[in-house]
Nucleic acid binder design. Sequence first.
DNA 1: TTAACTGCAAATAATTTGCACTTCG
DNA 2: CGAAGTGCAAATTATTTGCAGTTAA
Lengths: 137, 137
Amino acid sequence: MTETSWHEQLRARGYRVTPQRQLVLEAVKECEHATPEEICNRVRQTARGVNISTVYRTLELLEELGMVTHSHLGHGAPTYHLASEADHVHLVCRGCGEISEVSQDLVDNFVKDLDRSVGFATDVHHLTVFGRCRNCR
Amino acid sequence: MTETSWHEQLRARGYRVTPQRQLVLEAVKECEHATPEEICNRVRQTARGVNISTVYRTLELLEELGMVTHSHLGHGAPTYHLASEADHVHLVCRGCGEISEVSQDLVDNFVKDLDRSVGFATDVHHLTVFGRCRNCR
DNA sequence: TTAACTGCAAATAATTTGCACTTCG
DNA sequence: CGAAGTGCAAATTATTTGCAGTTAA
C-alpha cells in the first residue's frame, strides 16, 4: 500500500490522518512483533510522543483497515505487525521462548484440509503454533 | 487417570489433596472450556466455595501435573479443560464467535510437516485456529 | 506438629472509557 | 467552524502476591 493510498483510505471512511497515526504505523513497521507498550515507547523516542490510549485506539483502527494484524505469542500482551508482511506463521517454543517463523507454504495443506472437511476458512495471519523447537525437545 | 492415582501423584510431589483442588478439578470436568472466573463461580454453587486466587493457583498446579490444559479462544481469559479430553483442535469463527472442534487426525499431516522441515514438536492440545466458519465466510 | 495451603486484601498488568481540550479538513 | 482525535486520569478486567490464619498428613 502506498503512502497516499492509506491516507485516502482513512479519509474516505471519515477518519483523519494525524501525526499520531502516522507515528504508530511507522513504529509497527520498524519493530516487528511489538506490543502496544513497546510501540508506545518507540514512538516516544521521537520528538512527539503518543499516549498509550492513542496507541490502543490507533492499532484497533489500523487493524480494522486491514493494515496491521496481531498475534498472541505468549501470556502477555499481543504483538502487532504489518498485514502485508504477515505471510508467515509463528512457532513459539515453550522451552527457550524463541519465536520463529515458517513460510505459509507449510500450512497450505492444513488450510486446504480444514476447508475441505468442515468448510472453515483459516485466518493464516493469526495462526500461532506452540510447542518445542529442535533444541528444546 | 483414576481418582486415587492423581491423589498419589500430588502426594508424591509433596503436594496435598485438598477439597478446593478436588472441587476445581470437578468444575473443569463439568464445564468444558471454562475461564478461571467461570470455574470459580461453578465451585461457589456448591456448599463450600473457593477463592479466585486459589482457582488460579490450582489451575497452574493441575496444568503442571498435566491434568488440564488451556487455550486462548478469544480476547478474554483463557479457557481450561481436561488434558485427557484435549484430543481435538479448536476452530474459532470470527463471524459468529462459534467454537467448534475438529479431530486431531486433521492436523496430523501439518504436525508431521513442521517436524520434518524445522524439527518443531507441536503442542497440538494448545492449537487454536481463527478464521470463518462455513456459514460466515 | 509443621509445612503446605487458603482466604483476603492489596498490588500489578493490560486495556478501556469519560471528558475537556485540540486539530484536521 | 465542527466533527474527529488526543491526552489524561480514573475505571475495568485479569492475574499475582504478601501474609496471617487454617489444615492435611
